[in-house]
């Protein structure tokens, strides 16, 4: 299982959001750190095929990002995903399961399992408009897992979760990373420092760090904040 990102760039009129990022990711949890505006969301959108790179290629086990087969193995939780207020949670999952090409009987079974996994089994028949922010976020996590994705992309997944839910979510991600490639973006270091097999750090559209973070290298948060501080003061890359 291999996700290959080869010199991927995204350029807007007078701004480079992602600048020639190259990566090869295998099974495991990959934490993507970066300040707001670093290019994390843009990179993730390109990895999900909803934003076309201006340069470079993205393939998963040889499948191009533009192919339906690529999207069939993809699970995606956007940073600011929307929902249908009048839909019940179960309908929302069944609809998205249909979009992912999952047959209806399997979708029903899987949706039930996932609602239980995110502690929403009692709320499955309630309309989403009655949900709190945290409940909506858990529903978003559930939809990303509907198709047992081989490639799971989570953009700021812990936003809106309370501390207890964050811990539960971290454990869940750790489990998923055993059989899938999980790419998780955040600007909160504690979300990933204990579960990520690999740390990726972005700044101004460029990948400034990739690799395992070992305690011998020091405190990850301190390193991350150092990059951020340099950005604020106009410093150069580490």
């Amino acid at each position: 299982m291999k996700l290959v990102i080869d010199r991927v760039s995204k350029q807007y009129q007078n701004r480079i959001a992602v600048d020639r990022v190259s990566l090869v990711l295998h099974e495991g949890v990959h934490g993507l750190l970066g300040a707001n505006g670093a290019g994390k969301t843009t990179l993730m959108r390109m990895l999900c095929g909803i934003l076309k790179p201006t340069g470079g290629t993205i393939t998963f086990d040889g499948m191009d990002v533009s192919e339906e087969a690529y999207r069939a193995v993809l699970g995606y939780l956007p940073q600011d995903f929307g929902y249908y207020p009048e839909f019940r949670a179960m309908d929302f999952l069944l609809y998205l399961a249909a979009l992912k090409g999952i047959p209806r009987p399997k979708a029903k079974r899987r949706a039930g399992e996932l609602l239980a996994l995110v502690s929403l089994q009692e709320e499955g028949h309630k309309k989403i408009k009655t949900f709190s922010g945290g409940m909506k976020q858990r529903l978003g996590i559930a939809q990303a897992l509907l198709n047992d994705p081989k490639l799971l992309i989570l953009d700021e997944p812990t936003a809106g979760l309370d501390p207890k839910e964050r811990v539960r979510f971290r454990n869940l991600i750790e489990d998923l990373g055993r059989d899938s490639i999980v790419l998780l973006s955040t600007h909160i270091v504690s979300d990933i420092e204990h579960i990520a097999d690999d740390i990726l750090m972005m700044k101004e559209g460029q990948l400034i760090y990739q690799g395992k973070w070992e305690e011998t290298k020091g405190d990850l948060e301190a390193f991350y904040l150092q990059q951020f501080a340099e950005e604020v003061t106009g410093g150069t890359n580490a």
């Binding site: 995903f81 998205l96 090409g101």
Partner: peptide, 18 residues
């Protein structure tokens, strides 16, 4: 407007069947 387009377009059937 609702930003559900991200979920739809990243689905296997989202770019054609939908």
């Amino acid at each position: 407007a609702r930003r559900t387009d991200q979920l739809i377009l990243s689905g296997a059937k989202g770019k054609s069947m939908v």
